[in-house]
Amino acid sequence: MKKILIIADTHMPKKGISLPEQLISVLKKGVDLIIHAGDWSEKSVYEELSLYAPVYGVRGNVEKDEWAKQLPDKEVLQAEQIKIAIVHGHLGKGRTTPDRAYQSCMKDKPDVIIFGHSHIPFMEKRDEITIFNPGSPTDKRRQKKFSYGILTTTSNDFELKHYYFT
């Protein structure tokens, strides 16, 4: 069993000087992996998250420095028997962010697609693929609360859940 923290759109330090206490609490309790679906803004976010667990993530549309060039536009990884695709959601074809994320990962045949970009928590199942946006823990925009996600895997199944805080 693996516990995976899912975040996106941290936009730090512009939208948050540090990771919120709610997120730090989850990290201190322990996670096996961390997924960041882009718009980190600075490498310091990666460095801080790396203190807690291995970090996987993609480039968003705000990363402009040299570090960002090392980040892929799409990452595909395996956790237990669950295949996870990660994109930011700003590239590709489709009218909406979930549509672009779905279209850009279909050929990878994942079980789960993690995306960001819209800052809107989202979960939907399409053709046996779960599409998930954790929202943002630091930049809620017009959402009522900040949010993140937790993916818990077992040998052949998974559970995805949003967590909200003010």
Rank of each mutant, 00 (worst) to 15 (best):
V26L: 14
V26T: 13
L27C: 09
K28V: 06
K29P: 02
K29Q: 15
D32W: 08
D32Q: 13
D32R: 10
I35N: 00
H36Y: 07
G38H: 00
D39N: 10
W40E: 02
S41E: 15
K43M: 02
K43R: 05
V45T: 10
Y46F: 15
E48A: 03
L49Q: 05
L49E: 04
Y52H: 11
G57D: 00
G57Y: 00
G57Q: 01
R59Y: 00
G60N: 10
N61E: 00
N61M: 00
N61G: 00
V62S: 01
A68V: 09
K69T: 14
K69H: 13
K69Q: 13
Q70Y: 14
Q70H: 15
L71I: 04
D73F: 12
L77F: 09
Q78T: 08
Q78I: 07
A79W: 00
K83S: 08
I84R: 05
H88Y: 03
G89H: 06
H90Q: 03
L91Y: 02
G92D: 00
R95G: 06
R95D: 08
R95W: 03
T96E: 05
P98L: 05
P98T: 07
D99L: 01
D99E: 03
A101R: 12
Y102K: 08
S104Q: 11
C105Q: 03
C105T: 14
M106A: 12
M106N: 12
M106R: 15
D108E: 11
K109Y: 13
P110A: 02
I113W: 06
I113T: 05
I114V: 14
I114N: 14
F115A: 09
S118D: 15
H119K: 01
I120H: 14
P121V: 12
F122G: 01
M123G: 08
M123N: 02
E124F: 05
R126S: 05
R126T: 09
R126A: 02
D127W: 04
I129V: 13
I129S: 07
I129W: 02
I131P: 04
N133H: 01
P134C: 11
G135P: 06
P137F: 08
T138W: 03
D139K: 15
K140W: 11
K140I: 09
R141F: 13
R141D: 10
R142A: 09
R142N: 11
